[in-house]
Amino acid sequence: MAFHEVRFPTNLSFGAIGGPERRTEIVALASGYEERNTPWAHARRRYDAGMGLRSLNDLSALISFFEARAGQLHGFRWKDWSDHKSCVPSQSPAFHDQEIARGDGQMTQFQIVKNYVSGAFSYARPIAKIVKDSVRAGIGGVEVFLGTDFEVNNRTGIITFTRPVPVGAEITVGFEFDVPVRFDTDRIAVSVASFQAGEVPQIPVIEVRL
């Protein structure tokens, strides 16, 4: 399988339904208590691409995209409109949005992550598919600049600074990102008459591990 660095049409993904899925294994004990565990370190996202279709032209664009990916064979980028920035959706990314690491005086490369925080608990989600030219970064609370102080691999989410980050310095980033996905079906079944009558085909899309 190859991954195509192309984004699913954003006007079609805008109306899609979907979000993160977790897998939790629950064992009920004889005492009535439960033991809960998960084999997944990270959530996996699912979407329905069919929900964003509003016209026959949209349907045609979807079929063209589906055929170019050979169904489930090739992955692609997907914009999750509810979660595609390092900040809240109503704001623009800033260099201090997410702390990704602390400098040790030797390393220059770091994985970009997004932190989900609730109370005293948090989850760090690795982000691979960065939107080109969207990254802002800071070291020790001071903004540094793309092309001069750092470079970003938009396919892997690795940020590389031109010199080692000083010991203890906070590394922060702001960015926009896509979700790596593939179609979760090799078949699109749609009737034009039914579509015009308001019946929307189901086109499942699922996140892929990289």
Rank of each mutant, 00 (worst) to 15 (best):
D80I: 03
S64A: 14
G52D: 05
F110W: 02
I130R: 00
S60H: 12
V117H: 10
D83N: 12
P93A: 05
S86D: 00
K129R: 11
L56E: 15
G75L: 07
D83W: 02
K79R: 13
S82G: 15
A68V: 01
S82A: 13
A137K: 04
G105P: 06
Q72V: 09
I63W: 12
Q91K: 07
A49N: 06
A70M: 10
Q111S: 05
H74R: 10
A128Y: 00
E67Q: 11
R125Q: 14
L62W: 02
F76P: 05
D133F: 04
Q72L: 12
W78D: 06
P89Y: 09
F65T: 02
H74N: 12
V131Y: 03
C87D: 02
Y116S: 11
V117K: 11
P93H: 03
A101Q: 09
A120W: 10
L53C: 08
S86W: 02
D97I: 01
G103A: 09
K85M: 13
G138V: 02
N115L: 10
A68K: 10
A120M: 11
A49K: 01
E99M: 12
V113D: 00
R54F: 05
Q111V: 05
P93M: 03
L53K: 06
A94N: 12
F121T: 15
H84E: 14
P126Q: 03
S90A: 15
R69P: 01
G119W: 04
F65H: 08
G52F: 03
A94R: 08
R54M: 09
L56G: 14
S118G: 15
L53Q: 05
G75A: 11
N115M: 10
I130D: 02
D80N: 09
D83H: 06
V88S: 13
D48A: 11
F121V: 15
L59H: 04
I130E: 00
D133R: 04
A94T: 11
F95R: 05
N57K: 13
V117A: 15
K129Y: 02
L56W: 08
S134T: 11
G71S: 08
V113E: 00
S60M: 09
L59E: 03
Q111T: 02
S122G: 14
V117G: 12
F76Q: 02
D133S: 10
R136M: 10
I100P: 00
Q72W: 04
A137C: 09
Y47S: 03
S122E: 12
A120T: 15
S82M: 14
P89V: 05
F66Y: 13
D48R: 10
L56Q: 14
E67F: 01
V113I: 06
S86P: 04
L53Y: 06
K79S: 01
Q109M: 13
Y116R: 07
W78I: 08
V113Y: 01
V135K: 00
G75K: 03
Q72E: 15
D48W: 01
Y116V: 11
S134Y: 04
G71M: 06
D58N: 14
R46N: 09
I63M: 15
N115V: 12
Y116W: 07
D133E: 11
D104Q: 06
F95Y: 13
I130N: 03
L59P: 00
S122K: 05
S82I: 12
W81E: 11
A120P: 06
Q109S: 14
M51K: 13
G119L: 07
F110V: 01
P89D: 10
G103S: 09
G71D: 09
S122Q: 09
